[in-house]
């Protein structure tokens, strides 16, 4: 079971995040036509099939991205958002769909170093770019204090918007390793939580900063 295996410890959740990253297909060997289910050996064959069989349908495109440090070569449909490709093609569900219009921040990822709303970004626009998701942050030991602080302070209730907040927090700390509470509120102001966790994020991030920047002296 998902949650049982995730358990209480950091290591278990990280192991799962790590397993999900490892399970991402680096390159699709067999390509399935998304319209009729016929299978092909490569992108070229699929394109030819579209021209012959589905001339009026929008044809798939190739996409090369680095996701959480791993190079991926995918065949996607042009209208797919980055969020959809992460979920359907790569099995990464840390970016969540809440509003699907760029109005809530739950799907935040880091694209070429910048916080980005993956529901509001076409995957086809991301060719050649590097994407970092919450799973990638979770497996990087550098960010363990941040995740620890999030869990210690209940910076979540139902947990659905939490990964989006965590990614936005990480993006903030990349740019500003010692933010003030006001900086944090501003940086997280594009993320909607209905469970009332807003003050908890500032608390958790400030504590993580103490640990990460000042070596945890005040935290000990």
């Amino acid at each position: 079971m998902e949650a049982k295996a995730a358990g209480i410890s950091f290591r278990d959740a990280c192991a799962q995040a790590s397993a999900r990253i490892a399970a991402m297909p680096a390159k699709q060997k067999i390509v399935t036509c998304p319209l009729c289910g016929e299978q092909f050996l490569g992108f070229g064959d699929l394109t030819a099939h579209y021209l012959a069989e589905h001339p009026d349908s929008a044809a798939p495109v190739e996409l090369r991205m680095t996701v959480n440090g791993r190079a991926c070569q995918l065949i996607i449909e042009p209208q797919q958002t980055l969020k959809e490709v992460l979920q359907y093609n790569l099995g990464l569900t840390g970016a969540k769909q809440m509003c699907d219009r760029g109005q809530c921040g739950s799907c935040t990822v880091i694209l070429d170093g910048k916080p980005t709303l993956s529901c509001n970004t076409l995957a086809a626009d991301c060719d050649g770019k590097a994407v970092e998701t919450v799973e990638g942050i979770a497996v990087n030991p550098k960010w363990q204090p941040l995740i620890d602080a999030y869990c210690k302070w209940d910076a979540m209730q139902c947990g659905y918007c939490t990964p989006g907040f965590l990614v936005a927090a990480k993006a903030l700390l990349d740019r500003n390793p010692t933010p003030t509470e006001a900086d944090i509120k501003e940086a997280l102001s594009g993320n909607i939580c209905i469970c009332g966790t807003y003050p908890r994020h500032s608390q958790a991030i400030l504590e993580a900063v103490t640990y990460m920047v000042k070596g945890g002296a005040e935290n000990a």
Binding site: T108, T116, L117, A168, G190
Partner: peptide, 9 residues
């Protein structure tokens, strides 16, 4: 404008 992540894009 908008929100932090939107401004970046």
């Amino acid at each position: 404008c908008a929100s932090p992540a939107l401004r970046e894009n």
